[in-house]
Design a protein around this nucleic acid. Structure first.
Length: 582
RNA sequence: GGUCCGGUAGUUCAGUUUGGUUAGAAUACAUGCCUGUCACGCAUGGGGUCGCGAGUUCAAGUCUCGUCCGGACCGCCA
């Protein structure tokens, strides 16, 4: 037998018990005639003691074990004379009688402790060692708990977990597909799903009116801290539902998860904000509403006073950063640099300091009287001591830039507390967005999204104004999930493809099977999908989804541990009818 | 496709601004001392193609160009 207990469970009430433990040697402390070993497994750390006077040979053996050796010991649970209040097992230690080395270890490339000395790259390369660290385990365990709770909740609501295929067909809309060459069909390819979208709709037509799946999705685009080539979605779909049914069901699921996993309760309904309002007030379609600092339109108050920059602008907007009127010239210059960074791309920034004594000091004093500035302050509900930040230009771009600035100021004012959660729904997204270069319409959500009821007619006259029956769940500025009520009849779907620039033949070739299915009694349906990785990362307080994936890839989509992607041999290429062109 | 930052001991970094003696620190590792440590302590020691290639120069970790690798971001991600 390898163990009677794990390394995290022994307490003072087990004094005198003979135990067997197995685990990894985290640390050996030699104090002359006495040696301590910290033995670790995923449940905790237990201290082992060896004494020269009791058993010199065993003590010698203990001193020779290195970090990360796997050992099995037999011994007696004893009260420590010097207790360690830092760890749960700190009141006891094991006086070892027998030790067996089960597996030796080379010297690990970084320290495997709560605070490692290893950098990102080396920890990815030796991911199996990083996985031994409690902080990493915490994320992996949290992920398991969330997945369990999701399954419990949905299963109790009579949702069925149904798998859909990974080897499917490439479609032109959306992200780039990962592609798999076919050996059996010369020159043909499978594609890995970007999401099970079409299959879950076909399941609705197949009569499985409540479906879900925790499944991998694949998108061959460039990656970020919160984007990996393969990621996990909580994919859900329901039949005979309207938007309200979906929002109610999944708001309940969200609350269930918060309650069971984070012990956080939301007695009230989540706020619902229309897309247009979100853009106007927060400059983002995924606003962080842990703090207010709304954007205000001060175009009317600031134009026609002789300041050309504002007069020529389509829009002038401002935010109010509380208590920052004391910012120095150097600090305001830093903010100007911040908005001028190419990622934000603003031309500049005007600041107004509303001083404690009620006076104003701004970078545009030449053009605006204190009375003018006072009207701005009133519009923003600014108090003496606050700093007003103003940007102008083309409306949507300025709003986006102000949104970025708002987040930055929220960060500086410590308003983005990781222990605080602010979920909300964004609703009424536009159905289409226009490609700036080609003028072509794209589906903002996806091409199966239904327009809002009552807006079907607008489709012909003013497609850009049509709102989609789509919704996103946003928590703390992260898009956690999104979905829509789908189109469920052939005519509407054909019209949609037409607007998206598909020819009749093209649509038939790509999605003919779906259009055909619609002809055999398709129930009204809709659904939602959540990004499990992002959600776990959010609950875990991680900035990167890599922290909550057992084996993540780097930002170039490479797996540094197994060194993938890799070349394949000539025979494989031949079998797949492929030739490498350099 | 683009912008920015980085690559020096097993690891994390300093040194590069202003080219110039034997490239440092911490930690890890090894050895010795140490009987209550838990970031143990003390002493000694080993450990470097300064990512790679080319160039400038009497001389390159340091300057230039190219290239590879890693990270953050923009585009992209229905």
């Amino acid at each position: 037998m390898y163990r009677t207990h794990n390394c995290g469970e022994l307490r003072i009430n087990k004094l005198g018990t003979e135990v067997t433990l197995s685990g990894w040697v985290q640390k050996v402390r030699k104090l002359g005639g006495m040696t301590f070993i910290d033995l670790r497994d995923r449940y905790g750390i237990t201290q082992l003691v060896f004494n020269d006077e009791t058993d010199a040979a065993l003590s010698e053996k203990a001193q020779k074990t290195g970090r990360e050796f796997v050992v099995k010991i037999n011994g007696t649970v004893t009260e420590r004379s010097n207790k360690n209040p830092e760890i749960p097992t700190g009141d006891i230690e094991i006086i070892v009688k027998k030790m067996e080395v089960l597996s030796k270890s080379e010297i690990p490339p970084f320290t495997i402790e709560e605070n490692t000395d290893g950098g990102e790259e080396i920890r990815l390369k030796y991911r199996y060692l990083d996985l031994r660290r409690p902080v990493v385990q915490k994320g992996i365990i949290l992920r398991h708990k969330m997945a369990q709770e999701i399954r419990n909740f949905l299963s109790n609501k009579e949702f069925l977990e149904i798998e859909t295929p990974f080897l499917i067909k490439s479609t032109p809309e959306g992200a780039r597909d990962f592609v798999v060459p076919s050996r059996m069909s010369d020159g043909k390819f499978y594609a890995l799903p970007q999401s099970p979208q079409v299959f879950k709709q076909l399941l609705m037509i197949g009569g499985y009116d409540k479906y879900f799946q925790l499944t991998k999705c694949f998108r061959d685009e460039d990656f970020r801290a919160d984007r990996q080539p393969e990621f996990t979605q909580i994919d859900c779909e329901m039949s005979f539902v309207e938007r309200e049914d979906i929002l109610t069901t999944f708001e309940e699921m969200t609350k269930h998860l918060f309650n069971k996993v984070m012990n956080v309760d939301f007695p009230n309904a989540f706020p619902r904000i229309e897309y247009d309002k979100a853009m106007e007030n927060y400059g983002s379609d995924k606003p962080d509403i842990r703090f207010e600092m709304k954007i205000h339109d001060i175009s009317k108050l600031s134009q026609n006073k002789g300041f050309k920059v504002f007069d020529d602008a389509e829009y002038v907007g401002a935010i109010c950063a509380e208590g920052l009127a004391t910012y120095s010239r150097k600090q305001t210059d830093k903010l100007i640099d911040f908005v001028k960074r190419p990622q934000i791309g603003a031309k500049g920034l005007v600041y107004v300091k509303y001083n404690e004594d009620g006076t104003f000091k701004s970078s545009v004093d030449k053009f605006y009287s204190p009375e003018d500035l006072k009207t701005w302050a009133e519009a923003l509900s600014a108090k003496p001591g606050d700093l007003i930040l103003v940007m102008s230009g083309e409306k949507s771009k300025t709003l986006t830039a102000l949104g970025e600035l708002r987040l930055e100021m929220g960060e500086r004012l410590n308003l983005r507390d990781k222990n605080k959660f602010a979920p909300l729904w964004i609703i009424d997204f536009p159905l289409f967005e226009k490609d700036e270069e080609t003028g072509q319409f794209h589906a903002m959500h996806h091409p199966f999204t239904s327009p809002k009821p009552g807006e079907f007619n607008l489709l012909e006259t003013n497609p850009e104004a049509v709102k989609a029956n789509a919704y996103d769940l946003v928590i703390n500025g992260n898009e956690i999930g999104g979905g829509s009520i789908r189109i469920h009849n052939t005519e509407m779907q054909e019209k949609m493809f037409e607007h998206l620039g598909f020819t009749k033949e093209g649509a038939e070739e790509q999605f003919g099977f779906l259009m055909k299915a619609f002809k055999y009694g398709a129930p009204p349906h809709g659904g939602i999908a959540f990004g499990l990785d992002r959600w776990v990362a959010l609950f875990n307080g991680s900035d990167s989804i890599r922290d909550v994936m057992a084996f993540p890839k780097n930002n170039a989509g490479r797996d540094l541990m197994i060194d993938a992607p890799a070349e394949i041999d000539e025979q494989q290429l031949t079998d797949l009818h492929l030739k490498i062109v350099k």
